[in-house]
Amino acid sequence: MKHDCRSFRAALESALESPREGEPLESLSWNEHLLGCAECRALLESEEALETLLESLPAPKLPPRLARRVLARLRTAEHAREDALDRLLERAAQTQAPPGLSRRVLAGLESARAQPAEGAAEARLDALLERARAVETPGHLAQRVLAHVAEERALSRKRRPVFARASVRFALAAGLLAAFGLWAIWPAREEPARTRGLAQLPDGVDARMLEHIDVLEQWELLRRNDLDSLLSTLPRTDQLLLEMGSEEGVLGG
């Protein structure tokens, strides 16, 4: 491309960039360069025609009373969200929670609901909002969380043969308990292809653990940006357990 062409095209692009002042392309048609360059002339004509076509598209027709309807629906949606949370909490409360993860998750739910997140949780929410496009709970979240727990457990055992800290032991115990629960009812719920990560786990104990995580799975807020405010209410070890699952896909966007 000749130097003149390049500068003409640069002028054309910047005219297209700021289309507010009158008809910017019009002024370009007097450009001297066009007298001797058929190519740039053709380009300008084609861009002008495209502008005409784009401008000829009818503006989208707005539904009547759009804003009023959106407002009304927003209010309903917020109420429905509250109701769903109430129902889930109630349902969860009816099940006897085993000591450990699920009980603390429920406590987390309650306190997340009772007090709006602040400070550090806010910062985490902001970071999450950046990352999350529309957050969706993947199918079988609970299973995948537990599969990760199992993997992590195997890894930790290799990395750290001696657990000095009680909290680490406690987290692993919770993971183990969860894995037991999953193992107990796995064949009935899951296709064989997904059992890969759990093959080494021993036989099961507690299926209620799974139900609690299922509660979470269905929990409206988990699909939303409030996930982090829930997480921030939990002890760090439990956060890790849940985050392992969420890294897997809950926050994918």
Binding site: P63, V70, R73, L74, A77, L125, L129, R224, N225
Partner: peptide
Amino acid sequence: REDLVQEVFLRVVRARER
């Protein structure tokens, strides 16, 4: 589309504090 408009503003609602 109207659902999506609602969804957009729902995100605004949730961003209120921050």
